[in-house]
Amino acid sequence: MIEISHVNKWYSPTFQVLTDCTTSVTKGEVVVVCGPSGSGKSTLIKCVNALEPFQEGDISVDGTKVNDPKTNLPKLRSRVGMVFQHFELFPHLKIIDNLCLAQQKVLDRSRDKAVAKAEQLLERVGLKEQAQKFPAQLSGGQQQRVAIARALAMDPIVMLFDEPTSALDPEMVSEVLDVMVDLAHEGMTMMVVTHEMGFARKVANRVIFMDRGEIVEDADKEDFFGKPRSDRAQKFLSKILSH
């Protein structure tokens, strides 16, 4: 589904953020990307739907090359759902309109169809009563669930999560993770940047560990949590699992 091969990215000639990153996500797979801050995980996931450009290498999604200038990027992006650390709901639109905007403007769905789809998804994330509210009237956890529903409204073939729980108060983390776990169980293809190792343990198929722009470890979940091969991954795990 996602093929990433030999991706190199520089912010400036002397500052390389991604170094020779190669990995893949197959259909129905859940891949967790973790690593210390500044290791390039968010950058890598943003390269997948071309929110960030990269200078070398190739990324393709469902056979479509992301870095090909001929690719219709808006069309490709409309099939790749993305959830951000800071939710990024559109503050001037009601919850229902946050879910309908792209359905109507990008997928050309009728208002009725879009609303029906939106209501069905809001119901699914447990927020149907909030449809007529504005984002600022919701808690962080609710906003992030709306953001997930907004991405799902586009019927994506794959979902990207960029630290979806990092900006949440602790007691709101689980309501968001629950939605993501359900999604994984339904067979959604997911690439998730997160530090939630409990989530990784529960639903991930593979874990990628990044450090200083490189993919240091790319292993099945059992191998990763059993005995990571690299020192750096071991150190990282010992730090975040000790509490």
């Binding site: 808006p74 800071h86 990024e88 559109f90 792209a102 403007k105």
Partner: peptide, 27 residues
């Protein structure tokens, strides 16, 4: 506006024009 607003609009498949028209300019 937060940088993520433009990213969210782009990630949903809105074109640059649509992103400005429906997301960035109203705010």
């Amino acid at each position: 506006l937060p940088r993520g607003q433009k990213m969210a609009a782009t990630a949903l498949g809105l074109t640059t024009m649509q992103g400005y028209r429906y997301v960035l300019l109203p705010m």
